[in-house]
Nucleic acid binder design. Structure first.
Lengths: 228, 228
DNA sequence: CGGACGTTTCGCGGGCCTCCGAAAGGCGGC
DNA sequence: GCCGCCTTTCGGAGGCCCGCGAAACGTCCG
C-alpha cells in the first residue's frame, strides 16, 4: 500500500482523528486522556495510540505509570491543519466549532486563526521577517521590534526551524510556525494578550481555543496594527 | 464524524489513493483510466470516483460518453503532497519511486521536486518575488526577468492565486504554486527544458515525472543558478 | 437502426479492523 | 507488602465497506 494511503487511513479513523485533534495544541496527553477524548475504552485507545506511534505520527514518553503522547513534530500538526482546510463535504455548514475557535487557537505551539494569519501578513508585509531558503529570517528592524516586545529570539533560533509557514485550516492562508511562532505565542500568553480557555470535559476541541483579552486587543492594534 | 476523519478516510483507501495520485499532475482522467490505475473493475472505480466527487476532492466533467475527473483544485494537490511528506512508517525505505521522481515532477500544474524547491529558493532569495499578504508578488526586476524568459505573466495573474507555497513531498520544503508556478512550468516544457516521461501502462506514478534535458540543465544554471 | 463502448446501478459475498470485557503487568502510595 | 491506578494484552463479536458480476442506461459510429 502506498505511503499516502497508509498515512491517510491512519488519520481516517474517527477515534484516531479525535486523538490527533486533541494533540494539535502540541501538548502531551496520557493514554487515558486519549481514550476519553476519543470516547472509547482504555483497551481500544491503547491499541489506536500504538498504531499512531508505530506509524511515526505520534511520539510517546513513559513517565511513571503514565504514558505521555504528543504529535511527532510540527510537520504533523501542519499536515493535519492542511487536511482540515480541504473542501468540506456537503453544503458548507458554517464553522462547526464556533466563531471563537476561528479567531485564535493553538496549532503545535503557535497562534493560528484570524489573529495568526493577520500576524503572518503583517510581519511579512511590514518587513519584520523576509524570505530565505527554507523559510523566513528576521530582518534587523524586525529583531529589534521583537526583542522589545519580549520575544526570546535566542530560544526561537534553537528550534529545528526558525520560522516557516503553516497553512491555516479556518482561514486558508498561512500563519507563522517554527521557533519564532512558538516564542511569539509564548510571549502573548505570558503577557496575557491571549489566554487559554479552560478545557471542558465535554468538548475536547475547545482545548485549543485562545481568547483575546482587552489588553491583548489593544496591544495587537498598537504593536501590529491588527484589529482583533 | 469530524471533517478531518471524513476526508482522511476518503484518501485512506488504497484504490482512491491511487486515483488521487494519478490525478496529481493536474490533468483529467476518465473513469476507465481511474479504474486501470487503481487496479479494480469499472464498477468499483465508478463508485469510488463518485465518493471523491461527492466529497469535493475531485470534480467531474461529462463529455460524450466519457467522464473526465480532475482534482478539485490546487489546495487538494497541495494537501496530498503534504500528507506524503509525513514520517514514513517503518524503516526509511529510500524513495519508493526512484531518484528521477525526486528530481522533477508535476504537482497540480507546476514543477515539484529538487528543481521545484531550488527555483522557489532562488526566486525568493534573489528578489524575483517578495512576500505579500496571502502569497507572493513579483518584484519589478522579477517581472522583467520572467517576461524575458517567456513566462506569460498576464495568464499567471488570471489564476485565483498568483503565487503561493506548496509543500514539496520529497524535499520537505516549499515549491512555487499558483498561476506563476503554472506559467513557469508551461514555459519550461514549451522550451523543452523539461519533458514529460511517456506514461507506461504499468507504473501509474511515472505519469508525473519530468526529465531535465541537457538544454534545460544549461538554462537552469544560466538563468537561475541551479545545478540540475 | 443496431452494435460496441464507456459508465453507472444493484445485490451479494467477504475481509479487514474496530470495539469491548476480562485479565495481567508496572508503578506509586500507604 | 498490599492495594489501587494506569496501561497493555488477549480473544471474540460485530459492522462497515470494498470489490465483483450482471444488467441497464447513454453515447458514438457504421
Amino acid at each position: 500500500m502506498s505511503n499516502l494511503a497508509t498515512i491517510a487511513h491512519l488519520i481516517g479513523d474517527p477515534s484516531r482523528a479525535a486523538m490527533l485533534q486533541a494533540l494539535l495544541p502540541g501538548e502531551a496527553l496520557t493514554a487515558g486522556e486519549l481514550a476519553r477524548v476519543a470516547g472509547i475504552g482504555a483497551a481500544a485507545a491503547s491499541a489506536q495510540a500504538k498504531a499512531l506511534v508505530d506509524s511515526g505520527l505520534v511520539s510517546v514518553h513513559a513517565q511513571g505509570r503514565h504514558r505521555y503522547h504528543r504529535l511527532a513534530g510540527e510537520e504533523v500538526a501542519s499536515a493535519l491543519e492542511t487536511l482540515m482546510a480541504l473542501p468540506q463535504a456537503s453544503p458548507r455548514k458554517s464553522w462547526p466549532h464556533g466563531e471563537g475557535f476561528r479567531q485564535a487557537r493553538l496549532c503545535w505551539h503557535h497562534v493560528a486563526g484570524r489573529i495568526g494569519v493577520a500576524l503572518h501578513a503583517r510581519m511579512t508585509g511590514d518587513g519584520w521577517i523576509e524570505a530565505a531558503p527554507g523559510g523566513w529570517v528576521a530582518t534587523e528592524s524586525g529583531e529589534a521590534r521583537l526583542a522589545k516586545l519580549g520575544v526570546d529570539l535566542a530560544a526561537a533560533r534553537r528550534a529545528p526551524r526558525f520560522a516557516c509557514d503553516c497553512m491555516d485550516w479556518s482561514e486558508r492562508r498561512p500563519h507563522l510556525s517554527g521557533g519564532l511562532g512558538r516564542e511569539i505565542a509564548s510571549m502573548m500568553t505570558r503577557r496575557l494578550w491571549l489566554t487559554r480557555i479552560e478545557p471542558s470535559a465535554t468538548d475536547l476541541l475547545q482545548r485549543r481555543r485562545l481568547a483575546c483579552t482587552p489588553e491583548g486587543a489593544r496591544a495587537l492594534s498598537v504593536e501590529f496594527g491588527i484589529a482583533a
